[in-house]
Amino acid sequence: MITNLERFKREMEPARQLYTREIQDFSKKYDALGEMSMEEFPDIDTQDYIFSFEKVNGASEEELDEIYIEISNHMEEFSRTHGIEKFCQNARIWL
């Protein structure tokens, strides 16, 4: 028997791949960000996807806040454009 979590993960897999490629490509333009990692935090029926970035080059908190807003806004618009809003609701970006 397939659990709701397994069903959710299977349904989200194409969106996860698309979102991951886009956030990696988009974030490359910021010198203050290094490697990105993605972790999955399962719940009963869904899970959250945490995209964390390494901070490099001594960026200030103000600069990181601006980068966070730009990336978040871009990924929300990207998700709407590509029909993956449901995935975006479970994606978190950490700088």
Score class of each variant (00 low, 15 high):
Glu13Gly: 01
Ala91Met: 00
Arg7Asn: 12
His82Ser: 05
Arg7Glu: 13
Thr20Phe: 06
Asp48His: 06
Asn90Phe: 08
Tyr30Asp: 13
Leu33Met: 08
Ile44Thr: 07
Glu6Gly: 09
Phe53Ile: 00
Asp31Cys: 04
Glu6Leu: 14
Phe78Met: 06
Ser60Trp: 12
Glu22Phe: 01
Asp43Ala: 08
Asp65Ser: 15
Glu76Trp: 12
Glu85His: 02
Arg21Ala: 15
Gly34Leu: 05
Gly34Asp: 10
Met36Gly: 00
Phe53Asp: 02
Gln17Asn: 10
Arg80Trp: 06
Glu6Val: 07
Ile84Glu: 02
Leu64Gly: 07
His82Val: 01
Asn90Gln: 06
Glu40Ala: 07
Met75Cys: 04
Lys9Phe: 05
Arg7Gln: 14
Asp48Glu: 08
Glu39Tyr: 00
Glu22Thr: 01
Glu54Trp: 01
Arg80Gln: 13
Met1Ser: 14
His74Gly: 05
Tyr30Gln: 08
Asp25Arg: 15
Glu61Asn: 13
Leu33Val: 09
Asn4Asp: 12
Phe78Val: 11
Glu11Asn: 05
Glu35Cys: 02
Glu62Gly: 06
Asp25Tyr: 10
Glu66Gln: 14
Val56His: 04
Tyr30Asn: 07
Ile2Asp: 14
Ala91Trp: 04
Asn73Val: 07
Ile23Phe: 04
Tyr49Leu: 02
Asp45Gly: 02
Glu70Leu: 12
Ile84Gln: 00
Met75Ile: 03
Gln47Phe: 00
Ser72Ile: 01
Ser52Tyr: 05
Glu63Phe: 03
Phe87Lys: 01
Cys88Lys: 09
Arg80Thr: 06
Glu70Ser: 15
Gly83Trp: 12
Pro14Glu: 10
Gln17Asp: 12
Glu40Val: 11
Gln24Arg: 13
Ile69Leu: 13
Thr20Tyr: 13
Pro42Gly: 03
Phe78Pro: 11
Asp25Phe: 10
Glu54Gly: 01
Arg92Pro: 00
Lys28Phe: 11
Ile23Lys: 03
Lys29Phe: 02
Glu63Asn: 10
Lys29Leu: 05
Ser79Glu: 05
Ser37Met: 03
Lys55Ile: 15
Ser60Gly: 00
Ile84Val: 08
Asp65Gly: 08
Phe87Leu: 15
Asn57Ile: 01
Lys86Val: 11
Ala91Gly: 04
Asn90Pro: 00
Glu40Asn: 07
Asp31Tyr: 05
Asn73Lys: 14
Glu35Arg: 11
Gln89Cys: 02
Phe53Cys: 04
Met75Ser: 02
Tyr49Gln: 04
Ile2Tyr: 12
Val56Thr: 15
Lys9Gly: 02
Met12Ile: 04
Ser27Ile: 01
Tyr49Ser: 04
Tyr49Glu: 00
Asn90Ser: 07
Thr20Met: 09
Cys88Arg: 11
Leu33Ala: 03
Glu35Asp: 11
Glu6Gln: 15
Asp25Gly: 05
Leu33Phe: 13
Glu35Gln: 12
Asp45Leu: 08
Lys9Gln: 15
Arg7Pro: 02
Glu61Arg: 11
Asp43Asn: 08
Ser37Lys: 08
Gln24Asn: 13
Ser79Ala: 14
Asn57Val: 09
Arg92Leu: 05
Ser79Gly: 10
Pro42Ala: 02
Met75Glu: 10
Arg10Pro: 00
Asn4Cys: 06
Tyr68Thr: 03
Ser79Ile: 06
Ser79Lys: 07
Glu39Gln: 11
Arg10Ala: 11
Gln17Trp: 09
Leu33Asn: 08
Gln89Ala: 04
Leu5Asp: 04
Pro14His: 11
Tyr19Met: 00
Thr3Glu: 09
Ala32Val: 09
Ser37Asn: 07
Arg21Asp: 15
